[in-house]
């Protein structure tokens, strides 16, 4: 069965995304979600940001970070619906969760690629 072969890979990506979310997200939420928009810290200079986002290393790192965090989130949410909220439509829940993560990953790739080319 395909599902059995995919399952360990999903758990691996769940763990990797979990570690990355744990170490990267607090500072990213504080800076980009609150400090910059609200002016607690001066927002980064536009040209500097542009240079950082245009760098190939940033492209690879952000792509890996975002995709793994999306898979982490989808996998965890799948089990939240199943165990937490007792929604027992196993297949539908799995398809919706992973489907959203895949669509999100493709959109992420498109946006990161376009932004890196725009420089």
């Amino acid at each position: 069965m395909t599902r059995r072969r995919v399952e360990p890979l999903v758990w691996l990506m769940f763990s990797a995304g979990g570690v990355l979310a744990a170490v990267f997200l607090p500072i990213l939420v504080i800076l980009f979600g609150l400090a910059f928009p609200l002016g607690w810290v001066d927002p980064p200079d536009y040209q500097h940001l542009r240079a950082v986002i245009g760098h190939p290393v940033t492209f690879v790192v952000l792509l890996g970070l975002f995709v793994l965090m999306l898979v982490h989130s989808a996998h965890r949410f799948r089990y939240t619906l199943y165990d937490g909220l007792q929604i027992k439509h196993k297949r539908t829940v799995a398809v919706l969760c992973y489907g959203t993560a895949i669509v999100g990953s493709v959109a992420t790739l498109a946006v990161l690629w376009a932004a890196a080319q725009a420089v």
């Binding site: 939240t80 937490g84 999100g104």
Partner: peptide, 24 residues
């Protein structure tokens, strides 16, 4: 703890929108 996944996903979306804006 399990529901934190919603906010992880939200912030990825937020950051992707941020990168998109910078590209524009």
């Amino acid at each position: 703890r399990e529901l934190s996944s919603i906010f992880v996903a939200w912030f990825v979306v937020y950051l992707v929108l941020f990168v998109y804006a910078v590209g524009q």
